[in-house]
Design a binder for these strands. Structure first.
Length: 525
RNA sequence: GGCUGGGUAGCUCAGUUGGUGAGAGCGCACGACUCAUAAUCGUGAGGUCGCGGGUUCGAAUCCCGCUCCAGCUACCA
């Protein structure tokens, strides 16, 4: 899906009962960077995120907190999830909540469609039920009993024997789609990325799929089945449909056709739901399957998956309060190979902030603008005769643009940043070699000095555009300081794919003052 | 147990279909420079490429065994 003028990307919807941590933020940032890049390239772009609000757990915690589940969800959406998007500067186009009418009504339409087509049947669910937990347990949640319970399976939490219960349930004929899914994976190798995720899924589906129980009657916080209001739909079935109800499935066919299919960015923990159940659901309904599923890795803290119970969970604002949202976004998109697990540490974050953002990019902007201010009275100088050294910079910029765009099309966000960063390194080296401060000592070198500093200004102009999807705030400051806001218009309006064409910033443009883009941070604590 | 990945310089990681002396960034040491956020640029030190076999003229790169780490092994999201 490299080019084309349409780009629909989604994040998973947040389960409102969770506490926001950097894992959620990581997914959001990645999707947002992709969306901003495409949007700024002129593609018809849509970034969807939202919240998942149904299910037994939410009913329980709401009750425990003396609220109705809807009140509870409302509270969490406003106090936790929407603020998270602000904290990390996400420019989503929509925010869907699974309790909204546009979702609930059309989930019912979808269910009716599957029911009418015969993909849903009445069956009996048999499961191990723990009275203490008030829910069915999976085999992994059970342990062998001891003492008087020896020989029986007991609940790992309550250590009491579980009961085998039977319940009337509605089932989705997912097993019908085993072969169709395998064919899909085969025919479209990039449907699931990265390759390791694809292998995982294929191995799973090859074992054969079972039908999926998609209704619950033991609680009622969910979307009712249209043909049997004593059952609510299984939460995942409900949640996955957000990707199409948000864009008009069931009520706005034109918009649906305009947006669908989507690229789904998900963590590898929920890969299976997206790569197996979801496409099967769509196939059953006669709808196109997603454009792709990208499963990214875990953030590891101290070599282990971050978790609240091990006190390694980190709230995004712990980072942004000190480093800012741009640094947060930069760090997670550049330091971690998208698709693989990545290590997070405060030391690494501080080190990269200082060496790459402050000393590398920030200082490049400072030194360039300082010299333009000092030697050319604050106006972008004229480019004179171009030497091989200057041409080399032009080439680096042009190459960075095409390489980064290619990387984005492959969802290789980290690679794109790395490609763009070659401009930072090249310009810092260029300045040291060209020694504009030495040229400035002799008026005979005025033309050369002018060209060197023009090259710096143009390089920065390109950097501002290319990095704006990743670091919207600091690049905007740089854009204004370069005088580009008045000379070329708003940064968001700059087409990213033509950022490499040289000579856009007009000579004579007045530059402004620039505070350090990434100020040094005292001691990191 | 089975499956999917991974174990490469102090740290985080690249290493296409096996082939000139194994790479990058950071950190460290030394040097250059002074426009700049005590920033920049250059040079250098540093590695039995998890362990043991095998295939090959030649393997970090293929095959076998072993070992260590992480994740998955479906209807809680």
């Amino acid at each position: 899906m490299a080019e084309g003028s349409r780009f629909y990307v989604t994040t998973p919807i947040f389960y409102v009962n969770d506490v926001p941590h950097i894992g959620h933020a990581y997914t959001e940032v990645a999707a947002d960077v992709l969306a901003r890049w495409h949007r700024q390239s002129g593609d018809d772009t849509w970034l969807l995120t939202g919240t998942d609000e149904h299910g037994q757990k939410i009913l329980r915690t709401a009750t425990a907190n003396g609220a109705t589940p809807q009140e509870w969800a409302d509270r969490l959406v406003e106090s936790a999830w929407k603020p998270l998007l602000d904290t990390i500067n996400i420019a989503n186009d929509d925010f869907i909540r699974t309790t909204e009418a546009r979702h609930e009504n059309n989930v019912q339409k979808f269910l009716t469609t599957l029911y009418d087509k015969g993909y849903i049947y009445t069956g009996e669910y048999e499961g191990a039920y723990c009275v203490g937990c008030e829910e069915y347990k999976q085999a992994a949640d059970l342990i062998a009993g001891t003492g008087e319970d020896a020989g029986q399976q007991v609940c790992a939490i309550h250590s009491k024997p579980v009961e085998i219960l039977h319940e009337k349930n509605y089932f989705f004929r997912m097993s019908d789609f085993t072969q169709a899914l395998l064919d899909l994976y085969e025919a479209n190798p990039e449907f699931i990325q990265p390759e390791s995720a694809r292998n995982e899924v294929i191995a799973f589906v090859r074992q054969g799929l079972e039908d999926l129980s998609i209704s619950r009657s033991t609680f009622d916080w969910g979307i009712k089945l249209p043909w049997d209001d004593t059952h609510v739909v299984y939460v995942w079935f409900d949640a996955l449909l957000n990707y199409i109800t948000a864009i008009g499935y069931g009520e706005d066919q034109a918009n649906f056709d305009r947006r669908w299919p989507a690229l789904h960015i998900v963590g590898k923990d929920i890969l299976r739901f997206h790569a197996v159940i979801w496409p099967a659901m769509l196939m059953a309904a006669g709808l196109p399957v997603p454009a792709g599923i990208f499963g990214h890795g875990w953030l590891l803290v101290g070599g282990e998956k971050m978790s609240k119970s091990k006190l390694t969970g980190i709230a995004p604002n712990e980072i942004t309060d000190t480093f800012g949202s741009d640094a947060f976004r930069y760090y997670f998109t550049s330091a971690i190979t998208f698709g693989q697990d990545g290590s997070f540490s405060w030391e690494d974050l501080s080190a990269r902030y200082e060496s790459e953002l402050a000393n590398g990019f920030g200082n490049l902007a400072s030194r360039s603008l300082a010299m333009i201010t000092r030697y050319f009275e604050g106006q972008v100088p004229t480019e004179g005769a171009v030497t091989p050294a200057d041409a080399a910079i032009h080439d680096v910029v042009a190459a960075a643009v095409s390489q980064a765009d290619d990387a984005i099309s492959r969802v290789a966000v980290h690679e794109a940043v790395s490609n763009i960063w070659t401009i930072v390194d090249a310009l810092n080296g260029y300045i040291t070699e060209q020694e504009p401060w030495a040229l400035a000592k002799d008026p005979a070198n005025a033309d050369r000095l002018s060209t060197v500093l023009y090259t710096c200004a143009e390089g920065l102009r390109a950097l501002a555009v290319l990095l704006s999807p990743v670091m919207p705030e600091s690049t905007h400051k740089l854009w204004v300081a370069l005088g580009a806001e008045t000379a070329l218009g708003s940064l968001a309006a700059q087409p990213v794919r033509s950022a490499g064409s040289w000579g856009q910033l007009p000579a004579g443009t007045p530059v402004g003052a620039l505070e350090p883009l990434f100020p040094r941070i005292e001691s990191a604590e």
